[in-house]
């Protein structure tokens, strides 16, 4: 595996921006009531992330260190405005359901985080790959949570019925809870747990200081 392809594949599971680095959680939770909004948001996010990483990396030598945050935010905000206008033009219905969360891509910490940590120090092509990889890692988590919530909440996936609901003569009673905010928190918590069962290296050490009086801090 060359380092270039690792840039693309690492953020999918091993360094996933959502489940490991805990970045960009606001939108990851809010837009996952149904799978189509989750996918739209994930794709919009990947596009913004890839382009912003590329552009910031291209101009990285011209940005003075003191004002770099403002320059980065301006670049990101312009891209987000463009995406928002495109969504309103071609996918009006979905863009209404995403409400303010498309605009909130600006303050999504994944984008600023990758800009600061990667794009400011690396050549354009590597930054583009890193941006796409992290975008896809985000998309993957959103798609997972979105499909579980839509399947259990309505018995359908992407609007197509999968489990026959009671209302249509089937056996499945839709779980209204899945459409509400708390289910997103709990599902994402369980997802983090699942990832850490497969990748034990990601388990957090027992919190230092407060647990000093316990016999052994944490057996990891």
């Amino acid at each position: 595996m060359s380092t270039r392809s690792r840039l693309l594949t690492d953020p999918l599971v091993d360094a996933n921006p959502v489940t490991l680095q805990m970045l960009g959680i606001c939108s990851a939770l809010a837009v996952t009531v149904t799978l189509d909004t989750a996918l739209t948001m994930g794709i919009a996010m990947t596009a913004v992330l890839a382009l912003s990483s590329l552009i910031i990396s291209l101009v990285r030598r011209a940005i003075p260190a003191e004002v770099r945050l403002i320059v980065q935010i301006t670049i990101i905000a312009s891209l987000v405005m463009a995406i928002d206008q495109i969504l309103q033009a071609y996918l009006f219905d979905i863009s209404q359901r995403l409400s303010i969360f498309v605009s909130l891509i600006v303050t999504n910490c994944i984008i600023l985080g990758r800009a600061e940590a990667f794009a400011m120090r690396n050549p354009p092509l590597a930054s583009l790959l890193d941006g796409v990889g992290n975008g896809l890692g985000y998309l993957l988590v959103l798609a997972l949570v979105g499909s579980v919530r839509e399947l259990l909440g309505t018995g359908a996936v992407l609007g197509r019925p999968v489990l026959p609901t009671v209302a249509e003569g089937g056996w499945f009673e839709p779980l209204g809870f899945m459409a509400l905010a708390p289910s997103a928190f709990i599902l994402l918590g369980l997802l983090v747990w699942g990832v850490r069962l497969i990748r034990p290296a990601q388990v957090e050490p027992a919190e230092a200081g407060t647990s000093a009086d316990q016999p052994s801090g944490g057996a990891s």
Binding site: R196, V203, A206
Partner: peptide, 23 residues
């Protein structure tokens, strides 16, 4: 911090679940 939670759930995972219950 003093609770005995499964290792993988420690930290952020548990914080999510607690936030869900608060929500």
């Amino acid at each position: 911090t003093y609770a005995d939670v499964p290792e993988g759930l420690r930290g952020v995972g548990l914080a999510f679940v607690v936030t869900g219950l608060m929500s």
